[in-house]
Design a protein around this nucleic acid. Structure first.
Length: 324
DNA sequence: CCATTTGTTGGTACGATTTG
DNA sequence: CAAATCGTACCAACAAATGG
């Protein structure tokens, strides 16, 4: 029952290990010898159009102070509530189903106690009528583990009448693009014309590639796109992720125009060599355990117009062998 | 004191392909 | 042939930042 792919994977892992060792050696050299660094940098520049910056950040020290500054308990708004709760009890992240149910029950109670019709409640939540802003304060009194802001946003998301989920069709997509041309990134405004929430609309617009949606190349990657991605993360993190002689390797393997070679990760779908290409690319990058910075996907995507930030993110995760 | 937009991350849907 | 797997396009939901 030993799969062929497993064997391949073992082989590939070993291969990576030796590459890693090789690379570590080079990396060590560069750390000690700044002069070879610049030589390599110059060579790199001559050999390839791709920009390489050997900033060579030595292994990142974590800033101890950055942790303290994070823990300010903020219940947002309403100062008087801040005194009623224990900051350490404030939760973060996703609401559990129980939490959501609890909050919705409280909303319902509020509705009954204040003798509000469904329509009235809805109008308050969608901000169509003013004068009942205390609602958020009242409700959050019963939710000691969440900030007012957090509860406020949850309720407005959940009870938005436009919060219908599901896929977009082509017509909607075109409509969306038209509205963005007309109104800009005013999601609330656009939401008035489309039966979707602002969040929903914005997410969709991001997903199709924002203002670069016309350039987006689905599915296929060029080696150039790949390298730009890696280089950006290199610049950002300071870790030189590519082997210094990566372009020689690629040139040897794919010829002078290696940058234009396309591949798709879904190697079974098309060309047989797609997987090989990706494996080759994997072998010329070395990724540290922890890159230590949050990657600015938006920035990188604005450089690589043919890929969305989501495309880039997923490629990076794929490269790291994570999830999905 | 809110209302809206932006940054970021977690997760699912679904067709193509492989495997048992 | 049915079930499992894979790649990835796509959907959703939170906190942080910004605006008025």
């Amino acid at each position: 029952m030993m799969h062929k792919s497993q064997k391949q994977y073992e082989k590939f892992k070993n291969h990576l290990k030796t590459q890693e060792q090789e690379y570590n050696d080079i990396f060590q050299q560069q750390k000690i010898e700044p002069q070879t660094q610049t030589v390599i940098e110059k060579q790199q520049k001559r050999r390839s159009k791709i920009r390489i910056i050997f900033t060579n950040k030595t292994i990142q020290q974590q800033y101890p102070e950055s942790q303290e500054s994070k823990s300010v308990a903020k219940r947002s708004w309403h100062k008087e509530l801040d005194n009623l709760i224990n900051p350490s009890e404030i939760k973060d992240g996703k609401f559990s189903n129980e939490e959501k149910q609890q909050i919705m029950d409280i909303v319902h109670n509020y509705q009954i106690q204040n003798n509000l019709s469904d329509q009235q409640l809805k109008d308050y939540i969608e901000l169509k009528t003013l004068g009942h802003s205390k609602i958020w304060l009242e409700i959050t009194k019963y939710i000691p583990t969440r900030t007012v802001d957090s509860v406020y946003k949850l309720i407005r998301r959940k009870m938005d009448s436009k919060n219908r989920q599901g896929y977009w069709n082509k017509e909607e997509e075109i409509e969306l693009i038209r509205y963005v041309q007309q109104y800009g990134r005013k999601w609330r405004e656009i939401s008035k014309h489309i039966n979707r929430t602002p969040d929903n609309i914005r997410n969709k617009y991001n997903q199709i590639g924002e203002h670069n949606h016309l350039f987006r190349n689905k599915s296929f990657w060029t080696i150039q796109e790949f390298l730009i991605l890696i280089n950006n993360i290199h610049s950002l993190s300071g870790y030189p992720l590519l082997l210094p002689n990566y372009d020689q390797i690629l040139k040897k393997r794919f010829g002078d125009n290696f940058e234009q070679i396309t591949f798709r990760l879904n190697y079974r779908k098309m060309k047989v060599e797609d997987k090989d290409i990706f494996d080759q690319l994997k072998s010329i990058v070395k990724i540290p355990q922890n890159i230590g910075v949050t990657i600015k996907w938006t920035e990188i995507a604005s450089e690589i117009k043919t890929k969305t930030k989501d495309d880039l993110r997923q490629m990076w995760y794929k490269l790291n062998g994570n999830k999905f």
